[in-house]
Design a protein around this nucleic acid. Structure first.
Length: 488
RNA sequence: GCUCGUGUGGUGUAGUUCGGUCCAUCAUGCCGCCCUUUCGAGGCGGCGACCCGGGUUCAAAUCCCGGCACGAGCACCA
């Protein structure tokens, strides 16, 4: 009889995102970037995970700009619209609700005042180093037992610009004996006198992330918070605040840190510095891990979605090669990417022998005849890659077996007659000067050559035969085509 | 130091809740072959893993204890 082994069914890998815990019947999620620059590859994880879950359960995503810092990470005015557009590009839909923390300051300040009034918060005028001492010693600082009236008076002074920046902070009253030092009377609001790029100098007291985010999540009715596990203590801090207000904290889920080999560690601030110092061209410099750069190189948004969904919500810290994303992208774009020839470092040769009288008709896509043809004039000189000459016995792809001697290529057969190497080539008549720009770590490598000059559309991605995928970025004044390397 | 989190092939990932259906899934990578007028795509095959040590149990990737490693938080940044 059949052994058990034949009946045993192989286990399967579950695909897609796992079921969300908690009640997701009226799901509200949020994605909360700082508009101190456009979105990066890392941000796209938040966009994808949140928007995919919203799609799964018919929920909503709030796009919230956490722009409450004017000093360390000041917002860039243009970044608000960049991010809205990038969110839409990545997720394939626009955010359901878009809000800016800087527009909602009165709400935060009201809650802060209420917290003080209720005795759950206090104005602390210790220096940060002094407070750190108290925190480490699990001791209460002198400001902690001030009367509510005294705290309200200090609060007024903070808001009336009587107290200088750095002179006072509002703390949430927890317990100084809490085992986790991060939770002991954590800071909720501080003074910033540097004007905000969007709302000017209207406010003197600004909430910190943990406070602003907690209040706004409640205001928006957020049901699930999905964020990096570096924010686990934020959850704990905010839960204590919610207890003060008598609110129920959303379900929190986390992902671990992701490092992409090719990009290493980076931050929006560090990219901004690199651009300001001139070591990078701009936010879309192809070496950068920004969404703008990935778009410019020709990545499609589906690849980003598949990539992040495949990674899922693991709390593991991972380091992954860009190649993984590239393989997703290649699989998706290959069926719809037209072929062209790019000859890098070209050598000119002349064809000898009997030439066909009609043009050579090549498919724009080998698996999709409907895409049509590219027609080449085979008379006249042609270009081949210098490194392809070898012993001279090669097949010019889609054309003929030739033997190359010096500058001449003798046509031996149109049919494929043996196992000789197949190389790509290009009639000069059908070519134009081109430059392939290849990002390589912190460098940019450039390869000069000739590009098949047939129906080239700026912004389109082509598969350069035997080379790889690249996107046509622009034409220069002398008509040189500039291609940006995507991947092989 | 305190607190928290995570450990499955080279890289990711499924399985861990409720131990057996797991001599462990899938992808990517690498190797080989087939097909092919691309070194692309596709097809087929192969390589390769449960952090370590105890314990419970007929049975542990899965439960318990103890190590170890890595990461994060302890900012008047987000």
């Amino acid at each position: 009889m059949a052994p058990d082994a034949l009946e045993r069914k192989k286990q399967e890998k579950s695909v897609g995102l796992k079921e969300l815990p908690g009640d997701y019947s009226s799901l509200v999620l949020r994605f909360a970037p700082n508009p101190n620059g456009p979105l990066s590859l890392g941000h796209s994880r938040g966009v994808v995970i949140n928007s995919e879950y919203a799609k799964m359960y018919g929920g909503k995503v709030v796009l919230r700009f956490d722009d409450t810092d004017t000093k360390v990470k000041p917002p860039i005015p243009d970044a608000y619209s960049w991010i809205e557009e990038e969110f839409e590009w990545i997720s394939g839909r626009s955010a359901d609700i878009v809000i800016r923390a800087s527009d909602r300051m009165p709400i935060y300040l009201d809650y802060a005042r209420k917290m003080i009034q209720d005795g759950h918060g206090y104005v602390c005028r210790c220096k940060s180093e002094e407070f750190r001492e108290f925190r480490n010693l699990k001791e209460e600082c002198p400001c902690r037992n001030k009367s509510i009236e005294g705290n309200i008076a200090d609060w007024e002074e903070m808001n009336e610009r009587v107290i200088e920046s750095g002179g006072a902070v509002v703390r949430v009253k927890t317990e100084m004996t809490l085992p986790n030092p991060a939770l002991r009377d954590w800071p909720a609001l501080r003074i910033q006198h540097k004007p905000h790029p969007m709302v000017g100098d209207k406010y003197k007291v600004w909430p910190l992330l943990d406070f602003q985010s907690a209040i706004e999540d409640h205001e928006q009715g957020v049901t699930h918070i999905i964020r990096g596990k570096d924010l686990m203590d934020s959850t704990r801090k905010q839960t204590l605040l919610y207890e003060h207000f008598g609110w129920e904290y959303p379900v929190a889920l986390y992902w671990g840190r992701v490092k992409v080999h090719e990009y290493g560690g980076f931050s929006t601030s560090s990219i901004r510095e690199a651009i300001d110092s001139g070591s990078k061209e701009g936010w879309d410099d192809p070496r950068l891990p920004t969404i703008k750069a990935l778009q410019r190189r020709g990545f499609c948004s589906d690849s980003l979605r598949e990539f992040w969904i495949d990674l899922g919500l693991s709390q593991k810290d991972i380091s992954i090669p860009l190649q993984t994303l590239e393989s997703f992208n290649a699989r998706i774009i290959d069926p719809k990417t037209e072929r062209r020839v790019f000859v890098g470092d070209p050598s000119e040769i002349l064809l000898e022998g009997e030439l066909p009288t009609s043009d050579l008709r090549l498919p724009r896509h080998p698996e999709n005849p409907k895409a049509g043809n590219r027609n080449w004039e085979v008379g006249g000189p042609v270009a081949i890659q210098s490194s392809d000459v070898g012993d001279g016995v090669v097949r010019l792809k889609d054309f003929a077996d030739v033997k190359i001697v010096d500058e001449y290529a003798n046509i031996e057969s149109f049919e494929k007659s043996d196992e000789r190497r197949i190389i790509h080539w290009l009639p000069l008549k059908n070519s134009r000067k081109a430059r392939l720009v290849i990002p390589n770590g912190d460098e940019i490598n450039e390869l000069n050559g000739l590009l098949e000059d047939i129906d080239l559309v700026i912004g389109d991605v082509y598969q350069l035969e035997r080379v790889g995928f690249a996107r046509l970025d622009r034409f220069e004044e002398d008509f040189t085509a500039v291609l940006i390397w995507l991947h092989s």
